[in-house]
């Protein structure tokens, strides 16, 4: 274990889980929320020729997924460096 202490290891894992939780919430909202559960309500709004709920289901959610994976990679890289456990050595 490369951590200086057990507490550090715990803190690292907790921060990791918090990050995952937040990103999963966004993941859930754009796809299951906007694309499925609240699609009817959102369809009342128009985005050009798209009904908004339809747009989320067939376009918007996919763009968000791409952004989420890169945000995760970036944030985890920062976290690894903060705790000195990145594998760049």
């Amino acid at each position: 274990m490369a951590f200086q202490s057990k507490e550090m290891a715990k803190a690292y894992w907790r921060e990791n889980l918090t990050l995952m939780l937040w990103l999963s919430v966004i993941w859930f909202i754009v796809s299951y929320g906007c694309g499925i559960l609240f699609v009817e309500q959102l369809n009342a709004i128009k985005l050009g020729g798209f009904k908004l709920g339809f747009w989320f289901a067939q376009q918007g959610s996919i763009y968000t997924f791409v952004a989420l994976t890169f945000i995760y990679a970036k944030k985890m890289g920062d976290l690894d460096r903060k705790y000195g456990v990145d594998d760049d050595a």
Binding site: F54, I62, F65
Partner: peptide
């Protein structure tokens, strides 16, 4: 039509899970 969105979201959204929960 709109029902086909299950494929679009399903086959892309899984990569978010893969990237965060499994791959590393």
């Amino acid at each position: 039509g709109y029902g086909g969105s299950v494929f679009l979201m399903g086959w892309t959204g899984g990569f978010v899970l893969l990237a965060m929960f499994l791959a590393p």
